[in-house]
Computed example of a mutant assay.
Amino acid sequence: MNSQDIKNAISGALVVDKPVGMTSHDVVQAIRNGTGLRRAGHTGTLDPRASGVLVILVGPAVRLSEYVSASDKRYQAIIRLGGSTDTFDAEGKVTPTKDPVNVTESQFEEALKTFIGEIEQTPPPYSAVKVQGRKAYEMARQGEEVDLAPRKITVHHLEVLEWTPPEVVIDVHCSSGTYVRSLANDLGVMLGCGAYLVGLRRTKSGRFSLRDSVPLRKLQEAFTAGNWYQYLIPAAEALGDWPAVELNPDEVEGVRHGHRVKVVGEPTETKVRGVSTQGELVALMELATAEDGTHEWQPKKVFFTSD
């Protein structure tokens, strides 16, 4: 196998602990440069001021992005009480509150409870959300009024980790698409004292946590040493929370051409990943019903294995 064949066979995820100060695209570019692979992409932007888990898919695994991006996220957020900003974080112009902050920890926790569950959240004006084809932050920077529609998100869990007013550290477990900056701002409005985000660390993205991550600096050292493959999580494991169906060689060949596979036993899932006997990801498949009423797995996204 020549070097080009080896590159074509590389498919998986690199879980990076992103440092503060870099954009998500900066990290993707660093990985493209380090691996020599052109196909690479992140699965959910992390603001430059935020650190933590950033999942980068490389090779054919980039086609898993829509499934990995849809996963829940978890953050540790530092919120400052006693003011508000136009960006909802410390980047913006701070408008201090006129009154002293008299919020108790129990009042703060009661306010937190109102944000748990499925809620409507308005994205910050300085965000990458597009309004009639233009990014909101570009409009906001030009002084234009940005009217963003609220969107439904789900907040699974909120908990105070440190209470050291005017700063509070909270644990946030939420659906993809949640803006923690908006959560901080909305909390400040509800409490009447103003609040904004001063620090954010993503501790989990989907099934990947900080335990699975490698600091970018360490990864770059591995690029230089040529042993970065040790950090690559195979494509079949990138969706490790999906049930796996093992396909024999004949089924692999059939699935490659879009053919269905008979379901063995009574199905308990509607989506599975088909893997070869070597453990390679062959396809993402969905439950379908055949003409005779039996169940089959219909290939939805097929990945060519490297054999």
Rank of each mutant, 00 (worst) to 15 (best):
S3I: 14
G12Y: 02
A13Q: 03
V15P: 11
T23N: 08
S24P: 04
H25Y: 13
A30V: 11
I31S: 06
N33W: 12
A40F: 01
A40V: 08
H42C: 04
H42A: 06
P48K: 06
G52Y: 07
V55E: 09
L57Y: 03
V62S: 05
V62I: 14
L64Q: 00
E66L: 03
V68L: 10
S69N: 12
K73R: 10
K73S: 02
I78R: 14
I78L: 14
A90K: 12
V94H: 06
T97K: 03
K98M: 13
D99C: 12
V103I: 15
T104G: 14
T104S: 15
F108N: 05
T114H: 07
F115M: 08
I116M: 04
I116T: 10
E118Q: 15
I119M: 10
E120W: 12
Y126T: 07
S127C: 09
A128F: 05
Q132D: 15
M139S: 07
A140D: 05
A140P: 05
A140Q: 04
A140C: 02
P150R: 04
T154N: 11
T154Y: 00
T154V: 14
T164P: 00
P165L: 02
E167L: 07
H173V: 13
S176H: 10
V180G: 01
V180L: 09
L183A: 05
L183S: 09
A184R: 05
N185C: 08
G188D: 01
M190N: 14
G192W: 00
C193L: 02
C193Q: 01
G199T: 12
G199N: 12
R201E: 08
R201D: 03
R202H: 05
T203K: 03
G206Q: 04
S209K: 09
S209R: 10
S209F: 09
V214W: 14
P215M: 08
P215F: 09
L219M: 12
A222D: 13
A225G: 00
G226Y: 07
G226R: 06
G226L: 08
G226N: 07
P234S: 14
A238Y: 06
G240R: 08
P243F: 13
E246L: 09
L247P: 06
L247F: 11
G254F: 02
G258Q: 05
R260K: 15
V261F: 02
V261L: 03
K262N: 14
K262W: 08
K262A: 15
V263K: 01
V264E: 15
G265N: 04
G265E: 08
G265P: 11
T268G: 06
T270C: 10
K271S: 10
K271N: 10
G274W: 01
S276A: 10
G293K: 01
T294A: 11
H295P: 01
K301A: 01
F303N: 01
F303H: 05
S306E: 14
